[in-house]
Amino acid sequence: MEVRTIKVFTTVDNINLHTQVVDMSMTYGQQFGPTYLDGADVTKIKPHNSHEGKTFYVLPNDDTLRVEAFEYYHTTDPSFLGRYMSALNHTKKWKYPQVNGLTSIKWADNNCYLATALLTLQQIELKFNPPALQDAYYRARAGEAANFCALILAYCNKTVGELGDVRETMSYLFQHANLDSCKRVLNVVCKTCGQQQTTLKGVEAVMYMGTLSYEQFKKGVQIPCTCGKQATKYLVQQESPFVMMSAPPAQYELKHGTFTCASEYTGNYQCGHYKHITSKETLYCIDGALLTKSSEYKGPITDVFYKENSYTTTIK
């Protein structure tokens, strides 16, 4: 009895394709271990004539594949690729409408935090270190965002349907971005203890939790000093293409032309909904596939993004 075979390709990165001759009487799992086709788990399936010449994702289970996976995804987590594939199996079914010149995501599976993050990423200057993220990001900007969303979920250790947080998501993504040249110098002034300067680099240099107003941050924000008295913390120097200011959701007025974009969060910790506000020729609110415009805006804002380049204080 002759062994019926077909020729397929296996890959971990969709760049390096490895030619395989597979036995049609055995499952993919018996031949390769966990195997995925377009995100779908085909591990328990036997090869079919229609699979001839198709590319299958496999887990990096030998040295060659491990090197290829690390170079593309910059992670050695053995569960990463499987999590990416199972997320992709959902995100490829989502709709990605162009809204006001940006790629958004039609609401499904509690994905409003991903839509808000995706919209924000198209408006701030950011370059990702893992080629996987950078490639998928370019495709997302062009309207094909399924891979990018699935990668975000995998890097953030999230599953489809789980509630997510924009600030946490951005923080994970910033860790995989090139923020080497970003720098922030802060000064804390206390009447009792004097003053202390701190220099922050990388992710810490672009994120701040405690106030939404970048102007206020430049002037000074009140913080408790270690001595128990009130101290003032203010920005001395900022070198970065953008800054992200966050605070627990509270009524906040966004003035046209003073910011790049913002995240609105309605609801409580267990259950809520994100919308995205962007400042173009007027203010726009993007909620999944829905767009509304207004000249002014007041609502429960939790993150505001500002364009920056270089700032030095005039406070002496």
Rank of each mutant, 00 (worst) to 15 (best):
Ile6Met: 12
Gly210Lys: 05
Gly299His: 00
Glu168Asp: 01
Pro224Glu: 14
Cys261Arg: 01
Cys285Ile: 15
His48Arg: 12
Ile45Asp: 15
Asp63Phe: 07
Asn61Asp: 12
Ser79Gln: 11
Phe32Glu: 00
Pro224Cys: 08
Ala146Lys: 06
Glu281Asp: 15
Phe217Asp: 02
Glu308Tyr: 00
Ala146Asp: 08
Asp38Lys: 10
Gln237Ser: 13
Lys92Trp: 07
Tyr137His: 08
Tyr208Lys: 04
Pro248Met: 08
Thr159Asp: 13
Val21Pro: 12
Thr75Ala: 09
Ala117Val: 13
Asn309Tyr: 06
Phe217Val: 06
Val42His: 13
Asn129Arg: 15
Ile15Gln: 14
Thr19Arg: 14
Pro249Cys: 03
Gly194Trp: 02
Met207Gly: 03
Thr198Ala: 08
Thr211Tyr: 00
Ala250Glu: 10
Ala247Tyr: 02
Lys275Trp: 10
Ala145Val: 00
Asp77Lys: 08
Gly33Val: 05
Ser171Cys: 14
Arg83Gly: 07
Glu52Trp: 10
Cys190Pro: 04
Thr11Pro: 06
Val189Trp: 07
Leu118Pro: 07
Asn14Asp: 12
Glu296His: 15
Gln196Ala: 10
Arg141Gly: 10
Cys227Phe: 03
Val185Met: 09
Ala87Asn: 10
Leu153Glu: 00
Val243Cys: 06
Asp135Arg: 10
Tyr306Pro: 04
Ile286His: 01
Tyr72Glu: 07
Lys218Leu: 03
Gln122Gly: 06
Tyr36Phe: 12
Gln195Met: 14
Asn49Cys: 15
Lys7Gly: 14
Glu281His: 01
Ala177Tyr: 02
Gly39Ser: 14
Pro78Lys: 11
Lys95Phe: 11
Ser213Val: 01
Lys46Arg: 13
Tyr252Phe: 11
Cys193Met: 04
Lys191Thr: 15
Asn16Trp: 10
Tyr311Leu: 02
Gln197Met: 12
Gly39Phe: 10
Lys92Met: 08
Lys106Leu: 11
Asp38Ile: 09
Arg83Ile: 06
Val236His: 05
Cys190Leu: 07
Phe80Lys: 06
Ala150Arg: 06
Ala136Asn: 10
Pro34Gly: 11
Leu212Tyr: 08
Asp23Lys: 12
Phe259Trp: 04
Gly33His: 12
Leu151Lys: 06
Tyr96Gly: 09
Ala150Val: 05
Pro248Ser: 07
Ser295Val: 08
Glu264Ala: 11
Asn157Lys: 12
Ala154Leu: 00
Ser295His: 12
Thr120Glu: 02
Gly29Ile: 02
Ser240Trp: 01
Met85Glu: 04
Thr211Arg: 01
Asn100Tyr: 10
Glu215Ile: 03
Ile277Asn: 06
Ile315Asn: 15
Leu163Lys: 07
Thr302Met: 02
Lys255Tyr: 04
Gly257Pro: 02
Glu253Phe: 05
Tyr28Leu: 06
Asp165Leu: 01
Asp23Thr: 15
Leu118Met: 04
Met85Ala: 07
Pro47Ile: 03
His90Pro: 03
Tyr208Arg: 01
Cys261Ala: 01
Thr314Phe: 14
Glu308Gly: 04
Leu102Glu: 05
Tyr311His: 09
Gln196Ser: 12
Ile315Tyr: 15
Glu68Phe: 06
Pro249Lys: 05
Gly272Ala: 00
Asn61Gln: 09
Arg66Trp: 12
Lys46Pro: 10
Leu173Met: 12
Thr10Phe: 07
Ala145Gln: 04
Leu17Glu: 10
Asp23Gln: 13
Phe128Asp: 00
Tyr265Leu: 00
Pro241Val: 01
Thr76Pro: 11
Lys158Trp: 01
Ala289Val: 07
Leu37Thr: 09
Arg184Leu: 02
Thr211Ala: 06
Asp303Met: 09
Thr75Glu: 06
Asn187Pro: 03
Gln134Asn: 12
Tyr138Glu: 15
Asp109Arg: 09
Cys261Glu: 02
Asn100His: 08
Lys307Phe: 05
Thr198Val: 14
Gly220Ala: 05
Ile124Gly: 09
Val58Glu: 05
Tyr155Glu: 03
Phe305Lys: 00
Val236Gln: 01
His18Ile: 04
Lys127Asn: 11
Thr27His: 11
Gln175Ile: 03
Gly288Lys: 05
Leu119Asn: 03
Ser246Met: 01
His256Pro: 13
Phe217Gly: 03
Glu162Ser: 10
Thr312Ile: 11
Phe80Asn: 06
Asp135Phe: 08
Val243Asp: 03
Tyr72Met: 11
Val21Glu: 14
Met209Tyr: 15
Val185Arg: 05
Gly257Trp: 01
Cys182Ile: 02
Glu2Ser: 11
Pro78Arg: 00
Phe32Asp: 10
Tyr311Met: 09
Leu114Ile: 14
Gly202Glu: 07
Tyr214Val: 05
Tyr208Phe: 15
Asp287Tyr: 02
Glu144Lys: 12
Leu290Tyr: 13
Lys127Pro: 10
Glu264Ile: 15
Thr313Ala: 13
Ile105Asn: 11
Lys158Asp: 06
Phe70Trp: 12
Tyr84Thr: 00
Asn111Phe: 07
Glu144Gly: 07
Thr313Leu: 14
Val8Ser: 04
Gln197Ala: 08
Val99Ile: 14
Asn157Thr: 03
Lys293Leu: 09
Arg167Gly: 05
Gly288Ala: 08
Val58Met: 08
Thr10Ala: 10
Leu254Phe: 00
Asp287His: 00
Gly53Arg: 13
Ile301Arg: 03
Asn268Met: 05
Gln195Leu: 13
Lys93Ala: 10
Glu71Gln: 13
Val99His: 12
Phe80Ile: 06
Thr278Lys: 05
Lys183Tyr: 03
Thr159Arg: 14
Glu239Trp: 04
Glu264Tyr: 07
Met26Pro: 06
His74Cys: 02
Lys44Ile: 15
Val189Ile: 13
Gln123Met: 05
Ser295Arg: 12
Lys293His: 02
Ser240Leu: 01
Asn49His: 11
Leu291Gln: 01
His276Tyr: 01
Tyr138Gln: 15
Ala146Val: 06
Phe174Glu: 00
Thr75Tyr: 10
Tyr137Val: 06
Asn89Ala: 12
Ala87Gln: 14
Ile223Tyr: 10
Thr10Ser: 11
Met24Val: 10
Ile124Trp: 06
Val3Pro: 14
Thr292Ile: 08
Gln196Pro: 03
Phe305Met: 00
Asp62Arg: 09
Thr211Met: 09
Leu254Thr: 01
Thr43Arg: 11
Ala115Gln: 02
Gly202Phe: 03
Gly220Gln: 02
Thr232Ser: 06
Asp77Pro: 05
Pro47Tyr: 07
Val58Pro: 07
His74Gly: 11
Ile45Phe: 14
Arg83Lys: 11
Glu204Ala: 09
Leu88Ser: 04
Ala142Lys: 14
Val221Thr: 07
Thr5Ala: 13
Gly267Leu: 04
Cys190Gln: 03
Lys229Ile: 08
His276Leu: 03
Tyr172Gln: 11
Arg66Glu: 07
Ser279Ala: 04
Pro249Thr: 00
Leu126Met: 03
Tyr36Ser: 06
Lys191Glu: 15
Ser263Cys: 10
Met170Cys: 14
Cys112Gln: 09
Cys261Gly: 04
Ala177His: 03
Val67Thr: 15
Leu291Phe: 15
Leu153Pro: 06
Val166Trp: 03
Lys7Gln: 15
Ile286Pro: 03
His90Gln: 15
Tyr138Cys: 15
Arg184Trp: 00
Glu264Thr: 03
Glu239Leu: 08
Leu200Arg: 05
Asp109Asn: 11
Glu253Arg: 10
Tyr36Ala: 07
Thr258Tyr: 08
Lys183Ile: 10
Leu81Arg: 05
Ser294Asp: 00
Tyr113Thr: 03
Thr5Lys: 10
Val67Asn: 14
Gly202Gln: 01
Cys225Lys: 02
Asp23Val: 12
Ile277Pro: 10
Lys298Glu: 11
Lys191Cys: 10
Gly82Arg: 12
Thr103Cys: 07
Val12Arg: 12
Ser294Glu: 13
Gly299Val: 01
Gln122Ala: 06
Phe242Ser: 01
Asp41Asn: 13
Glu162Asn: 03
Ser50Met: 13
Lys229Asp: 15
Lys307Cys: 13
His273Gly: 00
Pro241Phe: 04
Asn157Ala: 02
Asn89Ile: 07
Val22Met: 11
Leu121Trp: 08
Val189Tyr: 10
Val236Ala: 08
Tyr214Gly: 01
Asp62Cys: 12
Lys233Asp: 03
Leu151Phe: 06
Val203Gln: 07
Val203Gly: 06
Gln123Pro: 05
Ala150Ile: 06
Thr226Asn: 10
Ala177Met: 03
Pro241Thr: 07
Asn14Val: 09
His256Lys: 11
Thr76Cys: 15
Gly220Phe: 02
Asp303Trp: 04
Lys255Ser: 07
Met245Trp: 00
Lys229Glu: 10
Ser50Lys: 13
Tyr208Met: 01
Thr278Phe: 07
Ser25Ile: 08
Gln196Asp: 07
Asn178Asp: 14
Ala289Thr: 07
Val58Ile: 13
Gln20Arg: 15
Val185Pro: 03
Leu151Ile: 06
Asp23Phe: 13
His176Pro: 03
Val22Glu: 09
Gln98Trp: 00
Ala40Val: 13
Lys46Asn: 12
Ser79Asp: 15
Val12Ser: 08
Phe80Pro: 05
Thr260Glu: 08
Leu173Val: 05
Lys233Arg: 14
Thr312Lys: 13
Gln238Asp: 01
Val160Cys: 09
His18Trp: 10
Met245His: 01
